[in-house]
Amino acid sequence: MTMITPMRVLGGQGLLLGGILLIASAIRAPITGVAPMLGLIRESSGISAAEAGILTTLPLLAFAAMSPVAAILGRRYGMERSLFGALLIIAAGIALRSTGPVWALFLGTGTLGAGIAIANVLLPSLLKRDFPTRIASLTGAYAITSGLAQALASVAAIPFAELPGSSWQFSAASTLVFPLTALMVWIPQLRQASVPAGELASLPRGGPIWHSALAWQVTGFLGLTSLVFYIIVGWLPGILVQAGYPAAMAGSLHGVSQLATAVPGLILGPMVARMKDQRALAIAVSVTTCIALLGLWQLPSLAMLWVALFGFGAGAAFILGLTFVSLRTAHSHQAAALSGMAQCLGYSLAAAGPPLAGLAHDATGGWELALACCAVATVLMAVLGSFAGRAATI
């Protein structure tokens, strides 16, 4: 049973909301803030491009592995305490990653990914429980906060690493500010010990939904969206540096891309609500992402335009894919089953992307092949989106 304390009733929701937004800042910046420094990390550690791709992939593998565990933790310890524990794990992962050795770099990255996975699963249920009439607006605020934090981490990465006497380890450690701030604000919530919402507390596994063509179309759309997004998030600074941009400028452009992913959260919700189906929108965001990738490939001198366009298109595609999970299902348990299927398979597919892109770079000496493959993936996204966007339910 959910317990609502006087603190929460008499104004504690403001503190709760602040804590939620600070958690949002902590679950993306530690990942995206490292991408601009992959070149520095490779130089100091001697790892290959493929190994650097694995570094980008580790959080995605943790997402796929830890998502089912998060619901169990929420049931056993309560959402508030589990989220506090998730922030501690994220902070520990950042600290370990920043100590220097290659083994710590990889282990710390996987550790912070596990903490992020727990927060990813539990936060939506917390929003549904405590702000049931404001989910759309708070999801938008959540996306904007996360985008701002990602942009800040990306823009500051290289300048922090190039400070006198500094290094990439110091720059990576600077992202500790996000989980530590969230931890301090979240402490009052430890008085609560509530369990996740019903549909999260008992996630269905397998079953008829795995035999539904529509479920596979939604899963494929989300999976390809994640694949393209994480390849570009991980390697965009390297792509820009090879195109002639200074490392600091590449980091700033990476930040622009991350900030642009938050913009669709402001406009997509009302737009989707007015549509009979979403086929045209799914095709449009896929084509937008494709144009941005082709622009980066063929006309990198206009990188500011292409990275902003990519961030908007990929961000819109991801939000639309998550919306499909609700729109294409008949009830909450079915939605939970589809969400589990789409996240497990989608993140598993996305995890293969950055290492393969790194291998392609090592084999060809450039990013053309990786960008071309990503563009082809967006065409497949458009095809799957034209099916997943139909006004139908599983």
Score class of each variant (00 low, 15 high):
Ala71Ile: 09
Leu127Gly: 05
Gly53Met: 04
Leu61Tyr: 05
Ala117Tyr: 05
Leu126Thr: 07
Gly115Ala: 11
Arg75Pro: 01
Leu127Ile: 14
Ile118Cys: 01
Ile54Ser: 07
Leu122Lys: 07
Phe131Met: 03
Thr139Ser: 15
Ala52Asp: 05
Ala49Gln: 09
Gly46Lys: 09
Met66Trp: 12
Gly110Gln: 07
Thr133His: 13
Gly78Asp: 05
Ala86Pro: 01
Ala119Asp: 07
Ser137Met: 14
Ser67Val: 12
Met79Lys: 01
Ala114Glu: 04
Asp130Val: 01
Gly108Glu: 04
Ser125Asp: 13
Phe63Ile: 03
Pro101Glu: 14
Thr111Leu: 15
Ala49Phe: 13
Ser45Thr: 15
Val69Tyr: 09
Ala86Glu: 00
Ile118Ala: 01
Pro68Ala: 07
Ser67Lys: 06
Gly78Val: 03
Thr133Cys: 06
Gly108Gln: 05
Arg129Asp: 12
Ala136Gln: 14
Ala86Tyr: 04
Glu51Asp: 08
Glu43Ile: 08
Ala52Arg: 01
Arg134Asn: 10
Ile94His: 03
Ile118Pro: 00
Ile90Lys: 00
Ala136Leu: 03
Gly46Ala: 13
Ser67Ala: 14
Arg129Pro: 00
Ala95Met: 12
Leu105Ala: 10
Val102Leu: 13
Glu51Val: 10
Leu61Ser: 10
Leu123Lys: 05
Pro59Glu: 13
Ser45Leu: 07
